[in-house]
């Protein structure tokens, strides 16, 4: 499947910001399940972008504005062709050993309730247990926008049994690690099967390291393993590590953030159309 993504993030500052620094994790890498055909990042004000790769294997752009700015829009557009690999990730070079993904982070620290929940998954092979874990979270934590915020920990979201995809993913990661299975957070996009192309927010899910198989995706919010409807963008130890944009403005005060996201399959007839971009 070919998936076209158009993702705009707009920052409007209370006062003109003298200077803005941001770290962007907005660019996907190719692997067996996805080929990046075209990708570009554009800003509506003059800014320098420096590209690098972090230890987690993400493409990072450091963004620096060049003059005082009262609003900044970062627009990412591109096209990725995907195949369904049953959620298994292959063809990625990992700098970090899987054991790193057993680390605690502030957002994914297990509390007694999560430990108990994870142990309740029961015995079995790791793959089987991860599937059961995904099912248990999908069934036990309701999807509800507004119940949690981006700074909620897995334990906090689990306590109220509500949250969005970030919370489902972080609860999954926390439990998997408790069970001794390395797990990481993935931010990305979902081409929704209900045809809802305009979306309010990007998607997120988890990946677990299964010995002998490698990294396998688990989308606890939807209760399925990623298919060819999924585009992986960035991974990290938790939501913070895979945040699409982390930044600071100097002198901009408190501003507002607006996200516009459009994810849709590309029709065959449109596939000829390609423009040059850098990824």
């Amino acid at each position: 499947m070919r998936i076209r993504i158009d993702h705009s993030t707009r920052y409007a500052y209370a006062r003109p910001a003298r200077f803005i620094v941001q770290m962007l994790r907005l660019t996907p890498k190719s692997c067996e399940s996805q080929q990046v055909r075209e990708w570009r990042i554009e800003t509506d004000v003059d800014a320098r972008l420096r590209r690098s790769e972090d230890a987690f294997g993400n493409i990072v752009h450091s963004l620096y504005t060049e003059r005082p700015t009262d609003a900044l829009t970062i627009r990412v557009t591109g096209e990725v062709s995907t195949v369904d690999t049953g959620g298994v990730i292959r063809g990625q070079n990992d700098r970090l050993q899987p054991g790193v993904y057993l680390r605690d982070t502030r957002l994914t620290q297990a509390d007694p309730a999560l430990v108990e929940f994870a142990r309740g998954i029961g015995e079995g092979g790791p793959l089987e247990r991860m599937h059961r874990l995904m099912g248990a979270i999908h069934g036990g934590v309701a999807f509800e926008v507004g119940a949690t915020s981006a700074t909620h920990t897995a334990a906090e979201a689990f306590a109220i049994r509500r949250g969005v995809c970030q919370d489902h993913a972080q609860i999954f990661i926390t439990c998997a690690r408790t069970l001794g299975v390395p797990a990481r957070y993935v931010s990305g996009h979902l081409n929704r099967s209900d045809g809802q192309h305009d979306q309010d927010a990007a998607h997120a899910w988890a990946e677990a390291w299964i010995e002998g198989l490698g990294w396998v995706g688990f989308d606890a919010a939807n209760g399925i393993c990623p298919t060819d409807n999924y585009v992986r963008i960035a991974t990290g130890l938790d939501a913070l590590g895979a945040t699409p944009i982390r930044g600071t403005s100097y002198g901009g005060g408190i501003g507002t953030l607006t996200v516009a996201l459009h994810v849709r399959p590309v029709q065959q007839s449109q596939q000829q159309h390609q423009s040059k971009g850098w990824s």
Binding site: D54, A55, R95, L96, Q97, G99, V100, R103, D104
Partner: peptide
């Protein structure tokens, strides 16, 4: 090492 709070995965390969 790998789960040590003072080990910084960000530095791996640097």
């Amino acid at each position: 090492i790998l789960t040590n709070p003072h080990y910084r995965p960000e530095m791996q390969g640097r």
